[in-house]
Amino acid sequence: MTAKEAKKANFAEAFKELEGIVQWFEASEVDLEEGLKKFERGLELARKCRSRLAEVENKVAEIKEKFSDYADGGEAPPEDEDEGQPRLI
């Protein structure tokens, strides 16, 4: 994984952590010392996330495969079709 990919992979985590911090701020009596620490961390995460938002391009790679080759492997057909023949119709 390149550094850039690592940064990207961390977006969801960073966002989740940030939301956790915000919840902490919303939920409880804020301890000032702890709050300042968390606030600082929150700002850092927000900054990280914002830089990810600046990424505008999506990369498309077409898969060169014949997908119908992958289609098999479902249920097997019944072995003997004659079994199904009614005695009388």
């Binding site: 391009e57 790679a61 898969i63």
Partner: peptide, 26 residues
């Protein structure tokens, strides 16, 4: 942005469509 998209080209109608799509899922 920043999404990696792997595109599986399939027939979406006609007689090969079902096999193509099922194959792409596989």
């Amino acid at each position: 942005g920043g999404v990696k998209i792997a595109a599986a080209h399939v027939q979406v109608q006609g007689k090969d469509a079902v096999r193509d799509i099922v194959g792409a899922f596989a």
